[in-house]
Write a protein that binds this DNA or RNA. Structure first.
Lengths: 386, 386
DNA sequence: CCCATTAAACTCGTCCTACGAGCATAAACG
DNA sequence: CGTTTATGCTCGTAGGACGAGTTTAATGGG
């Protein structure tokens, strides 16, 4: 409750950010990267230990010299509850400051009705609150749909309409941070996955339609209301075809199972993901041709995004990985053919995402931890913990 | 040369950023926005005065109470030389910490040959160095072309090939910051123009082709090598048409004078800008139809970018303004028709840029000042000035 | 014209943090 | 077992931010 003095916990915040971004980092390594003197490092870690934010464990010795310690989350430290809502199930984990996941849970939906699912999430939040008490600082939720200021605007896979997600934390006095699952999986890739270390990264994931995000230094460009990253609704496609989103010529329509069905002159599939997997298993010429068309549209669109954003790396996830693998040459040709000439010398690599199923959960965890490792958050926590 | 103590000049840097971003701001206003106590404000300004970074002038009194002061750049303070290279001329101005432009100059190219133009710029830099001495901290250069790590990759309007721009500062020991003119005009709009205050903004400018940038909190997303923002080379267009950039179906080809000529079945114009202005002056049906097609492509593409980035506002400059004005309804129809449904309730406004001719210069100045108002830059300056 | 009101500047004691220098310590190496 | 090496620890110093109290310069009412 004492007013926060400017810069008081600045260095401490920097240290915690390091710990959150590189779990298992040692005290000496942190001091080196932050250019801290050993004296300051001693002081900062002592202070962080005093307020229950960190503990230290002896690090395995690396050659000569006095061994250093590994910085770990304090057993009484703050945590984030990360939730990942998916079409047929949802997952949760409690995340400590060093990024470690505790109590991972996996639950299949019994009912897919919005109110039932939200009630289950709310229950999970309440249980976590009971278990962790004041340690629970934030709930970070990944949702497969367009999210705007904690409101779900549309969720085609779940077939939900507009929905207030703050219901999830209605029973507890903890802030909620809801985000799009594709965006969050991009965060995971940019922090600890295939795009780790990239200054600018583009992440794309195909499930039903294509979603993604632009990441700058690991921070997603979420736009004015958090709805950024709807790359599937850029008009890369045939303007004659209209999209359920309301626009026409959307890239989406050229990419997912619906596009395959169109090329194969079949009716629009109920489950575009399963349909795509089915087509990928087929070995006939028609299936190959349809896949090639989709892969070309993918490579071509990615090239456009590379032209626009000049990323260090592009990461792809979901069905994009098997699709590309099914027509590697077609992809490369479309991708490189769509690039501006000066990019061709060293085109940004298009890498498969490494986190895959737990990307959204990891990303939600990472963005949640970002909130905890800000200076004001730490100062507030410290003020309450002697 | 004394090592910089962490956080030593943090508050001072915050104050200077305020001054640079809001020229003419008063000391009291700065203290309020930064939540500084009056005591701290007194100390910080005194320190900044001592090291020749700021001066204070009495502010016109606003009602009761002791009058405050306006924070201004110190007459002996650091400056940036902002340069704006254009097709037929170049401009320069010396920018002080409070954003004030001194010694504005305007020079028409006598020759458009790269080496001649660069020599003139180099001469201007040298003269500024002679006049300002150590006060000159940075040269910030706007160029109409793709810039990558201070190298010009392509400049279609100037018809220059790859070029090392660091030649401009070869005679002086001052860093160079080169950037694309469209990107920099976007910075100007986001800081003090039509997009002022926007968290996320998209800026687009049509001259020869279409360029632009995504701005997040006034900072352009410049990509891995500074070549971001080439929106003209997203494949929004007809894939059958190939673009001089090497790709196909570029938006560029649907937007500028070359597109108008295509629609009017005329040969590719030498000067697409003049050609566009000419067509805009025509009153015949064919010209109107051609303009309408281009305007539709513009609105449609902007909608795609809005879907992808969810900006607070879109700003347009150059020929985009008269083009839209020539077919307002067509634009609105294409723009709103291309938006995802949930954006239609309140589509981001598409505003005319307010800086227009001096946008790139202002943007270059702003990004240059960003460099000077960082904590390490201030600490270094202070160490050298008693 | 003077004094109350108001907003802001100034002064100063206190607290806090980062730093550096010097010293202590725990491993590996020969 | 001493030397080498990297790191941790202690403590004196310096400087900034803050708050409380005081002063100052304007307005506006009586």
């Amino acid at each position: 409750m004492t007013p926060v003095r400017r810069g008081q916990w600045q260095t401490a915040a920097d240290v915690l950010s390091q710990v959150a971004r590189q779990p298992g980092i040692t005290r000496a390594a942190v001091a080196r990267t932050l250019r801290l003197s050993t004296g300051s490092a001693t002081e900062v870690t002592a202070r962080l230990r005093d307020v229950h934010l960190l503990t230290e464990a002896p690090a395995p010795s690396q050659g000569r010299g006095r061994p250093t310690t590994v910085l770990q989350a304090h057993p009484e430290g703050p945590v984030v509850l990360a939730l990942d809502l998916r079409q047929s199930n949802w997952r949760s984990a409690v995340v400590a400051l060093d990024g470690s996941l505790q109590d991972p849970q996996y639950t299949r939906h019994r009912s897919r009705r919005a109110q039932v699912v939200l009630k289950n999430l709310r229950h999970a939040v309440e249980q976590t609150q009971e278990r962790y008490g004041d340690r629970l600082q934030l709930v970070s939720l990944a949702v497969p749909g367009t999210v705007r200021d904690n409101q779900l605007m549309q969720a085609p896979t779940l077939e939900w309409v507009e929905l207030d997600l703050t219901q999830v934390t209605a029973d507890v006095d903890v802030p909620l941070l809801a985000g799009n699952d594709a965006t969050l999986s991009g965060v995971a890739e940019a922090r600890t996955g295939a795009a780790a270390g990239a200054g600018t990264a583009v992440h794309l994931i195909i499930e039903v339609g294509i979603g993604g995000t632009l990441l700058i230094d690991g921070v997603p460009a979420q736009g004015a209301s958090g709805a950024g990253g709807e790359y599937g609704h850029m008009p890369f496609g045939d303007r004659a075809r209209s999209c359920p989103c309301g626009a026409r010529g959307c890239w989406d329509l050229e990419i997912d199972g619906r596009a395959l069905a169109h090329h194969l002159k079949q009716p629009r599939p109920d489950d575009p993901v399963a349909y795509t997997e089915e087509v990928l298993r087929r070995t006939d010429r028609a299936a190959h041709a349809a896949v090639a068309k989709v892969v070309a549209a993918l490579g071509y669109g990615i090239a456009g995004l590379v032209n626009a954003h000049d990323p260090d790396v592009v990461t792809i996830g979901g069905l994009a990985i098997p699709l590309r693998a099914a027509a590697e040459d077609t992809f490369t040709e479309a991708y490189e053919g769509g690039l501006m000439r000066f990019h061709r010398g060293s085109p940004p690599p298009v890498l498969a995402a490494t986190h895959q199923p737990d990307g959204p959960l990891r990303g939600a965890a990472a963005l949640g931890l970002d909130q905890l490792t800000t200076e004001p958050a730490i100062a507030t926590w410290a003020a309450h913990h002697s």
